[in-house]
Design a protein around this nucleic acid. Structure first.
Lengths: 118, 118
DNA sequence: TGGATATATGAACAACTATTCATATATCGA
DNA sequence: TCGATATATGAATAGTTGTTCATATATCCA
């Protein structure tokens, strides 16, 4: 005991302390899931889409119009949002309407906005 | 008036409705800041570092030891976290101790964890 | 002052990702 | 069924980013 970490000779932290921190960390897989989750919000196009959908249920082409982007670009990003269950959709004839999967999404966005406004 | 959006011939949404959504959207710059903010949490190494620092004030080499990564890789990521004011640091001799900038960070992480645990 | 150590950083590279372009699929109306 | 339209998708490309390697900077101690 009283073994220090290997990196620095100084006893900043004992080995059992380092171990204790490791114990308290969420499991590896959860950490990956978490960063993957935040990654989705890490693209401005997707964030814009989410804000549009927080206002109304909107079809793909209307999103493209509002954001002044191509239908293809929007569709690709909607696929990401869909795959990660952030949005849901409903078909009405040729049109597909998208909306937020749940209110949780808005909470996350709001929380983020609050942070950057400091 | 009664003009429909240009994309689809159907009147899914009138032009003034599209305009109204645009009005309610946060300003362009804020949307970029927001996605940039989430982007920081979108890397597992950075998320891991933040979790380590949520447990204790730790020096660079101890973080590297805990996460089993090179000192350089950790240092590069700490630079990102530092530049974005997510962590603060204090020098003690040769050693530099890092800690979370504020408790807000833990809230964000916790919120994210809660979401993916559903 | 010189050697050892903790951290930082620049360049290079590999991996990833967002958009574009072309095209496919699905639905509607005639 | 055929043409028109809304959406989806595959391939290609350009831009971004995380890690590594080599090295620089800063501090301590002898």
């Amino acid at each position: 005991m009283d073994k220090t970490s290997q990196c620095c000779g100084l006893a900043h932290m004992q080995e059992d302390e380092l171990h204790a921190i490791n114990e308290k960390m969420p499991p590896e897989e959860q950490l990956y899931d978490l960063s993957d989750f935040f990654k989705i919000f890490g693209d401005s196009t997707r964030v814009k889409i989410l804000f549009v959908l927080s206002e109304a249920e909107v079809c793909v082409c209307d999103i493209a119009t509002i954001l002044d982007m191509t239908q293809s670009a929007i569709s690709h990003q909607l696929r990401v949002l869909k795959a990660n269950k952030l949005v849901k959709f409903r078909r009405d004839g040729k049109t597909i309407f998208y909306s937020l999967a749940d209110s949780h999404i808005q909470t996350i966005l709001k929380q983020g906005l609050e942070h950057i406004e400091e």
